[in-house]
Design a protein around this nucleic acid. Structure first.
Lengths: 240, 240
DNA sequence: CCAATAGTGTCTGTGAGACATTATGTT
DNA sequence: AACATAATGTCTCACAGACACTATTGG
């Protein structure tokens, strides 16, 4: 029956319902020790002046990933996005957009806290919001953000994705602060160091020292992302 | 700019491209110690007589999950699907369907190896195929199946999903054979038992014994799924 | 000197893998 | 009896958490 309805639809465009497909992107970064998400303020109805995830319609002959990358460049103003981008999942509840049937393919993006101001080629307000101080959100974007946060919290355990939140080269203290911000915990400094360095190919040492901070203290060694795609053993988050 | 294009699209349906949205489902089970996937044989062009994942168009005012459940009932002939269903991810490469733009939301379903013959209300052939002996596949379904297998292999580590492949009540040997089939490995019997029972709420003992098999041997104790949604500690798959 | 941060060494508990042993059924 | 499968006990190694200690900078 699938093949038959496929066949009919091919010759009768009205046989399948018209659906709009959009991509929505949860762009995340660490700012002031907090996990933050980029939101834009809507200028039109519905949800006028509400905040929402950046996104837009998928164009004809455009891949989903390409659409996400295009929106990412437009919204951050960066020609090449300096971070990680991956699909989260799709949301298609029939009434999620009050105007029409819209299926949204949500993406997650992670980037270091660049001084570069975000906000693309349009005048709409855009800024990062800490995840535990979010404003009212348009559509079902609050749920999407919850799913995105959950995905990131899980994924930095077994993948080297936490390094996408820092600029290279980085210190182990910077990497530790990423884990602490995403998980909302404090981690044991010495054990964190031992775990990261004992995980093969997670980070590679750069034979250089970071400039000492204003607070004093011994300068930290610098590292870069290693070739590992999966962490063995994983960086398990504290259970308590 | 997003809000503006949204606004325009609401009043000019031709402003956004017409996209068909389908759900495709990778229904998995364990049969003869092998992980198997349900495929249907296409009766129409394109890919006529090729095998493909069951699926179909999302109807107007139908949720994505509901569409997947509906297709599942139609294809397996079971009014209530006796297993687990979850979204995998979406596939939207522009040329993935030669007829038109189709974005497919892929799902994964897991069920026990029921004697009930699959094959729904239409005459098209439908059967389970072992994952290392798959036929030629239509569209990008080979890639979807790869992603589905990868997801299942990872997910049974930290979730109790492996229990979706067996009927209740089950023995630990049956549960172990699920892990062995999905991972394609053999597991240490005694250690497997200790791990499962030491993971809180993974399984709960049923105070009964399984009927002894034709081969003889001590009858096994029976268990049911426990309330755990996540496994702590996880069932880590062997690294070698 | 002290304060602050980076990095090392060591002990302990838990869990995984390997393997031996006991228990309980069929033939 | 032999055989097959289920379940238990025990040893060892790897790793996580806790904590003490050393190293290197700025005031």
């Amino acid at each position: 029956m699938t093949s038959e309805s496929d066949f009919l639809a091919a010759y009768d465009p009205s046989a399948f319902p018209a659906v709009a497909v959009t991509v929505d992107i949860a762009v995340m970064t660490i700012r002031n020790g907090q996990l933050c998400i980029l939101l834009i303020q809507r200028g039109a109805q519905p949800f006028q002046s509400s905040w929402a995830l950046p996104g837009g319609f998928v164009k004809p002959d455009e891949d989903l990933d390409s659409a996400a990358r295009r929106e990412l460049s437009e919204e951050t103003g960066l020609s090449t996005f300096p971070g990680h981008l991956e699909q989260l999942r799709s949301y298609g509840e029939p009434k999620r957009d009050p105007r029409m049937r819209v299926v949204s393919v949500a993406y997650i993006a992670m980037m270091p806290d660049l001084p570069t101001p975000v906000g693309g080629d349009d005048a709409a307000a855009a800024r990062f919001w800490a995840i535990d101080d979010l404003p009212q959100l348009a559509f079902d974007h609050a749920g999407i953000i919850n799913d995105a946060i959950e995905r990131v919290r899980n994924k930095i355990e077994y993948s080297p994705l936490a390094t996408s939140f820092v600029e290279e080269p980085f210190t182990l203290a910077e990497l530790r602060r990423v884990y602490e911000a995403v998980w909302g915990t404090t981690l044991h400094v010495a054990n964190f160091r031992r775990k990261v360095l004992s995980t093969p190919d997670f980070v590679v040492a750069e034979d250089a020292l970071a400039p000492s901070g204003s607070e004093g203290g011994r300068p930290a060694e610098l590292y870069r992302r290693g070739p590992a795609r999966l962490l063995h053993p994983a960086m398990l988050r504290p259970s308590s």
